[in-house]
Amino acid sequence: MAAAPHIRTATLDDEEALGRLDRDTWSTLHAVMPRPQPPYEPFYSERFGPRDHLVAELDGRVVGYIRLGFPTPLACNAHVRQILGLAVADEARGTGVGRALLRAVCAEARGQGARRITLRVLGHNAPARGLYASEGFAVEGVLREEFLLDGVYVDDVLMGRSL
């Protein structure tokens, strides 16, 4: 049986590993932005820093992350958090890393006082949709054919759950 991933808040020292993970896992299965090209943008930005990321480690190696933020800057929406990114290294898929990150981010959002958590997932990303559904997320809306990826129109699926 594989060891359970260690989940922690990201640090500044994680930036290089997180950027590499983001580039290595890029796919039109979950990304709507073009494939990153050198010179690469920093992983952290003015909008999202280490405090906005939970990191998964296996045997001391960063193998996943999840980004948590606010869906809008409005005070009337401050009770909601949104998952704004999730990546798991190819070699760590199927080991429970994604599920552990999802559970940890829900606990983090709850700890911040959030009542709901939402996310957006591409309609053709069946593995992610299955994971989210198994953790209590329900489809709350579908933007039909929202993106054109690799010559195919893809739905943008809005999912959410109460905390």
Rank of each mutant, 00 (worst) to 15 (best):
G98P: 00
G94W: 05
R35D: 12
G98H: 01
R47Y: 00
N77M: 15
L54N: 04
V152R: 15
E145G: 15
G123Y: 07
A138P: 03
V121Q: 07
P36C: 08
H124L: 06
V152F: 13
T28F: 10
P5H: 00
P71M: 08
N125L: 02
F70K: 12
C76D: 13
A56Q: 02
V152D: 13
Q37E: 14
I117H: 02
L119C: 06
R115Q: 12
A3L: 11
P36K: 04
G60H: 03
Y44Q: 06
D24S: 09
G96Q: 07
A2V: 12
R110A: 15
A10K: 05
T9I: 12
G151W: 07
T95H: 10
V142F: 06
R129A: 02
D14H: 07
G111P: 10
D14I: 08
V154R: 09
T11V: 11
G136S: 02
M1F: 11
A75Q: 10
R116W: 07
R144I: 09
V142Q: 09
V154G: 07
Y44R: 09
R93W: 03
L68W: 02
Y65V: 03
R51G: 13
H79Q: 09
E146D: 15
Y65W: 13
L18T: 05
E46R: 14
V105N: 01
V32D: 03
A3Y: 09
L54G: 00
P36T: 07
G64A: 02
P5Y: 02
L84G: 05
G130H: 08
G49S: 08
L84V: 04
Q112N: 12
L143C: 13
R47H: 13
Q37P: 04
V154H: 06
L68E: 04
T95G: 07
A2T: 15
R67Q: 14
H53I: 01
V80I: 13
T118Y: 06
G19A: 07
L84E: 04
V121F: 05
L158F: 13
A56P: 03
Y153K: 13
G19S: 11
R99T: 11
G64V: 01
D155K: 00
L21D: 01
R93N: 00
V32I: 10
A56M: 03
G98T: 04
P50S: 12
L163N: 09
E135M: 03
G49M: 08
